[in-house]
Design a protein around this nucleic acid. Structure first.
Lengths: 340, 340
DNA sequence: TTGAAAGCGATACCAT
DNA sequence: ATGGTATCGCTTTCAA
């Protein structure tokens, strides 16, 4: 396997006892040295001997044993469900990870696909995380929250479009996206607004709330919203475009930029002028939207920077038991270009 | 926190001893019952009492304690480095996760950003995984492989563009992408071929090997390849387009479809006919490429299905110590459309 | 300055 | 059919 020369048939995994033996000290001393325990004075010579022994053996402490002894871990569990993560989410996860690492937490992503909400909660609880940040997928149930809390989790936090009762919530309220898009279209004088609903399974989670936000804003202004199911295929877009004029719409919020590009192309191919007859706006502000003609208007989404989520988690872990907090993360701004 | 009524001030986390006490049996019996241990007969009545006690207390076994006792875990560690994952990788991870779960492994993604290769290897070893599947980022070193192996990992597997000495390898050799793109352009009669190199930090990892593959295939045919650094911004593309004719190229492989779209738009805006004067081909076969005019040619990438990676890992775990195996996962095929 | 030993939670052997 | 108990690797109190 590994081709390093010095490896005297070490069959089993080295433990701190092996290190102690090799260094000629007790296991306690090994622990003191390797953890730089300040409450105890150890001679420099002993320290060196211990460290050398450890590195000779390739000793690495056993995290499970350690946290078993300690009675707690610093693991923050981040379950995943394979809802395909966009760049926004990826950036968020990455920032959360490095921020939490800086606060000395260990972040572990745990793939939970195929489990139902309560099975998943139990599986998570087995790992005894100090905090759980649960994104979308099957929503956490009160039972799940209970299991996690009883298993010692100091903070149970949901992450997603809506909060869940009894847990803290990092809310990325997708309604603001639809709301923002429609507000922009209304400002442009459009009144009969289509809203694309992607038919791909995972995306309903975002599509629905965006529609709700769009509808709410439209109705507040006495305008009308029409849901438009669409699959992410040229054929589906062509069909929609072919019956476009029967719909009598003067604008469309196309869920995101990719669907917007798909639909806009289909509309153009069907001879519908954009934005002349129908305005189009997407979301995500992809670079690619600027390459089309007309350039695609979009809704740019950002995650609020104010209270860094990592610090929130840290605070909740240190002072558990408060009433559930809600933090809104998502900001949306319209980026008008030529298509609307 | 949780609002469930029945919670009689349970301050500490319930253990199997608590379950035993409540059920009026020994901890051994609890273990037998909850693990459905077949080597021992337990009366149906006792079983029920134990199960009820467990569920009353919200008992969930402690994974760390269990694997400490067992001396091994079934955790497959999948380190991540926040190299933004494309859909191809996401699909791969997801498939790997569910396949491994089916084989009764626990898959854990561990964010390792900010650590260097050897620190990371030690951090992974602390978790005592039974297998590690290490994607790109800082490449695993011989020392890292050694630490992991000594810590009890039965299989150390790299995942990425190149294999690493001493470990098994799931290879996604990006050279075949460049090779495939250039082969297609050569077949179309092009001879002076530009190859876009994205300047974004993370992407060099893929860009370089694609260039190498492109160059190899071109030179084998006596054709020439010219590297073209490009940032993913309109301005950068416009600059490149403005000096295009001085380059004397009749084709370009643009790294991927996004860069291809960016560049193609810039070329068109600069009055360079595509594909008349310069052919363009991307990679990833994004839906969006079909919406441009001319429709964008692309290289479609697929992961070989043959030997499912999960089964490979399972085999390596059960029969450790063989010589390092290499498995090529990436297949590339040209998808000719109008731009080339 | 160092060592002996208890104990974290779960499991499996050996008794009963 | 069930219970007592040693054990996994590590940390930490208490003694020496």
């Amino acid at each position: 396997m590994s081709q390093l020369p010095e490896q005297p048939t070490m069959t089993s995994v080295p433990t701190s006892a092996d290190v102690a033996r090799l260094a000629g000290v007790s296991r306690a001393t090994v622990s003191y040295v390797l953890n730089n325990n300040a409450t105890v004075r150890i001679s420099e010579q002993t320290r060196r001997r211990v460290r050398e022994a450890a590195s000779d053996l390739g000793y690495v402490p056993h995290a499970a044993a350690r946290s078993l002894r300690a009675g707690h871990s610093r693991m923050v569990l981040l379950p995943t469900w394979h809802i395909p993560a966009g760049p926004l989410h990826q950036r968020f996860f990455h920032a959360l990870q490095s921020d939490l690492r800086r606060l000395d937490y260990t972040v572990v992503q745990y793939g939970s696909g195929g489990l139902d909400a309560d099975e998943a909660a139990r599986a998570w609880a087995e790992l005894r995380p100090v905090a759980v940040v649960s994104p979308g997928g099957p929503a956490l149930t009160p039972y799940g929250i209970d299991v996690l809390t009883r298993s010692g989790a100091k903070a149970v936090i949901t992450l997603g479009p809506q909060p869940v009762d009894g847990a803290h919530a990092l809310v990325m309220d997708q309604r603001v996206v639809g709301s923002c898009a429609v507000a922009h279209l209304l400002a442009r004088g459009r009144r009969r607004i289509g809203v694309v609903l992607p038919q791909e399974p995972g995306l309903a989670l975002f599509g629905e709330p965006r529609l709700v936000g769009a509808r709410r804003t439209a109705e507040a202004a006495g305008a009308h919203v029409q849901p438009l199911p669409l699959r992410y295929e040229e054929e589906s877009a062509a069909q929609l475009a072919s019956r476009w004029r029967t719909l009598g719409l003067d604008a469309v919020f196309a869920y995101n930029d990719e669907y917007a590009m798909l639909l806009m192309r289909a509309l153009q191919d069907a001879g519908i002028p954009v934005p002349g007859e129908t305005a189009v706006i997407g979301a995500d502000d992809l670079m690619l939207g600027r390459l089309l003609r007309p350039r695609l208007s979009s809704v740019r989404m950002e995650l609020a920077a104010g209270q860094a989520p990592a610090e929130l988690i840290d605070r909740l872990v240190r002072h558990p038991g408060g009433t559930p907090e809600r933090h809104d993360l998502l900001r949306a701004t319209a980026v008008p270009r030529e298509s609307s």
